[in-house]
Simulated scan of single mutants.
Amino acid sequence: MEWREFAEAMARLARDLLAQQTVQGTLDEIATSAVKLVEGCDAAGILAVHKGRAVTLSKCGDMVEESDRIQAELGEGPCFDLARRAGSELFYRIADMTRPRDDWPRFAEAARTLGIGSMTGVLLYAQDEDFGALNLYARRPGTFTKDMETAGLLLASHASVALADARTIDQLEHAMESRHAIGEAMGILMERHRLSEDEAFDALRRISQHHNIKLRDVAQRVRSTHPPEP
């Protein structure tokens, strides 16, 4: 793909990412677009590590989830190295995964078994011990050249902005849903038990604290056990 075509594709991708309605939709669009836009890319995925637990957030291709699982199980591999060097490097490119490696020999051997010929990846975010990375895979060694490195960085820059935006929107929607649920539950208690607004909220809060349950979950239980009267 010529750079002009790639730039046009990036513009379309930006619109598509912003059009997604959910965080998962955004993640899936990023992974799918990586395979479409980066020449020679056979699979792509987004790996996140949170509190020591590795999770494949999205994948496009067969080898992604198994590669993530093996890196997490072994505690070694390009994604983990990239996260450890987050202050100095944001990108990795491995031209040939079919050769033995001294830095992570066990993962390299497993990658060959999976049919991974070359890999490249970009750090999307890093915070304390948590990180997220976009990883691209090819079955053929030598697929990811310097030009592909630039393409990957451009793709990741779009992905990072869209992902941050999607996460913010998701948090806001979650907060609005929580507020709506709590408001409905308070209304039910006020009507059924002749409570004031403050008394109804205090009742929900006491249940939440006593049972160590989130206030939103208490409200949901009140709503489900007290359906509207006909």
Rank of each mutant, 00 (worst) to 15 (best):
E8S: 08
L82P: 15
A44G: 03
G142E: 06
A44V: 03
A203I: 05
L215M: 12
Q24G: 12
A159G: 04
V38P: 00
E2T: 15
A200E: 00
V55S: 11
M119E: 14
R112L: 09
V122G: 00
R194N: 14
Y137G: 03
A110K: 12
H174M: 06
H180F: 14
L215W: 03
S208T: 10
E229S: 12
E39G: 08
G117E: 02
L155I: 10
R85N: 13
A159V: 00
L74T: 02
Q171Y: 05
D16Q: 14
T113D: 07
Y125I: 02
D130N: 15
V38N: 01
Q24C: 03
G183M: 02
L124D: 07
L114G: 07
Q171T: 12
F6D: 00
T98A: 06
A108V: 11
L37N: 02
E229F: 04
E173I: 03
V218A: 03
K51D: 10
R15E: 14
R167Y: 09
A31W: 08
A44M: 00
W3F: 15
A48Y: 13
V122N: 01
F91P: 04
H158M: 08
E5V: 11
R53W: 04
K36V: 07
R69Q: 13
L189N: 05
L215P: 12
A72D: 09
D103Q: 14
E149P: 01
K146F: 01
G142S: 07
E184Y: 10
A203G: 01
L57T: 02
Y137P: 04
H193E: 13
A151V: 14
R223I: 12
N212S: 13
L204M: 01
R167N: 06
A185K: 13
D42E: 08
G115M: 02
V55R: 15
Y137M: 07
T113P: 03
T113I: 11
V38M: 05
D28F: 05
E73C: 04
D147Y: 09
D102G: 07
E29C: 10
